[in-house]
């Protein structure tokens, strides 16, 4: 990891809006009734670095439990990072006091994974969307109402629904309410933590389109988290693939789909259904075997080695460095070479 140089992951020709360096979040595992002993830790995020340029969308993809949410939550300081820095607009968020962080969040908002849990069921839509405005005293009375209505219409909800409660809405509509709340403070960046994973496939596209539309209108920057590559395909400018607390590959969107370099990325891509049934049948899906990865375990080598169809002896003992193969395309793998993965490397043994 050490040779992942600070500037290496930024897209060409732009000063990053967000710059995460060697970010780590370890949760202690404790035992004991009154006096806790630390008996280990969950390395939910274990040293990741990436940049997000203004106006760009960085997709962050990985299977469940790999630390995507924790990454987003550490950036916005819902959890305290264990180590590393998160520079946002040139300020290191990781070291801000909680009051300063509160101010900083005006420009950095988040959309949550579960549209059912992310809205207080006892509050009306009006109060939910108005909450950030009230907190910072940005509007009151008629102006507040007007702003809330404007936000609701902006995310495609009728302002006449403002006195209804979250449970009266569908998942997609609820997610739109979450978007409206995130937009209320007029932020420059939004962390979207699997905003569509909990939604029906038919609704997913609508919400993704809405987010894209809003990005164009309001010059937003997104960190867009998803657990499969299909979802981030349309919206992302670049995609980072995460595995067990690490980023294993990061590349411009088109490239990662066309020429993946990390075996894990290849496996993820093989799981995307292809609309053409003939092609779908012809293609071989790479099934991952091996032990279910554990974030509590310490790894000497590559974390993916246990399950990797392409692994070589070195993988289990030495951590692969994050290497830039083509401009902006990084991967951490011992097997992959300048021309990508060797032919047949992914064939199951």
């Amino acid at each position: 990891m050490s040779d992942a140089s600070p500037t290496s992951t930024s897209p060409p020709g732009a000063a990053p809006l967000l710059r995460a360096r060697d970010l780590k979040v370890h949760f202690p595992i404790e035992r004991g009734v009154l006096f806790k002993r630390r008996i280990g830790s969950v390395r939910a995020v274990d040293g990741i670095s990436f940049d997000v340029a203004p106006g760009e969308t960085l997709g962050l993809v990985g299977e469940s439990g790999c630390g995507k949410s924790t990454t987003a939550r550490a950036i916005i300081r819902l959890v305290q990072p264990t180590a590393g820095s998160v520079e946002f607009q040139g300020v290191d968020l990781a070291t801000l006091s909680s009051d300063d962080m509160r101010e900083a969040r005006q420009d950095l908002q988040m959309i949550f994974q579960d549209p059912y849990a992310s809205l207080n069921p006892r509050m009306t839509v009006l109060n939910i969307v108005a909450e950030p405005l009230r907190n910072f005293g940005l509007a009151r009375g008629g102006a507040l109402l007007e702003r809330v209505c404007e936000l609701l219409e902006l995310v495609g909800l009728s302002a006449t629904w403002r006195n209804r409660y979250p449970h009266e809405f569908s998942g997609g509509q609820r997610q739109r309410i979450g978007v409206a709340r995130a937009l209320a403070l007029d932020p420059s960046m939004i962390l979207c933590d699997e905003p569509v994973s909990a939604l029906d496939v038919s609704v997913q596209a609508q919400v993704v389109n809405l987010l894209q539309d809003l990005q164009a209108r309001l010059c937003l920057t997104y960190l867009f988290i998803a657990h499969d590559l299909a979802v981030v395909r349309h919206i992302s400018d670049r995609v980072a693939v995460m595995y067990l607390g690490r980023i294993v590959e990061i590349a411009p969107s088109a490239e990662i789909y066309a020429a993946p370099r990390h075996p894990y990325t290849v496996a993820l891509l093989s799981a995307i259904p292809i609309p053409d049934p003939a092609l779908q049948r012809a293609r071989r899906r790479i099934a991952l075997h091996g032990e279910i990865p554990s974030p509590t375990k310490e790894y000497a080598g590559c974390r993916f080695a246990d399950r990797c169809p392409a692994r070589i002896a070195r993988c289990a003992v030495e951590d692969p460095p994050f290497v830039e193969y083509t401009p902006g395309h990084f991967a951490a793998c011992w097997v992959t070479g300048p021309d990508g993965l060797p032919e047949g490397a992914m064939d199951a043994r």
Partner: peptide, 28 residues
């Protein structure tokens, strides 16, 4: 972004505040 604003207006119609809100049902 003048065209964006007009697009929003087109969606919203005449001021959304003025339209009577639908009364929701609280969990209580």
């Amino acid at each position: 972004m003048p065209d964006t604003d007009s697009a929003i207006d087109a969606v919203a119609g005449p001021s959304p505040v003025d339209r009577a809100p639908v009364q929701g049902e609280s969990l209580w």
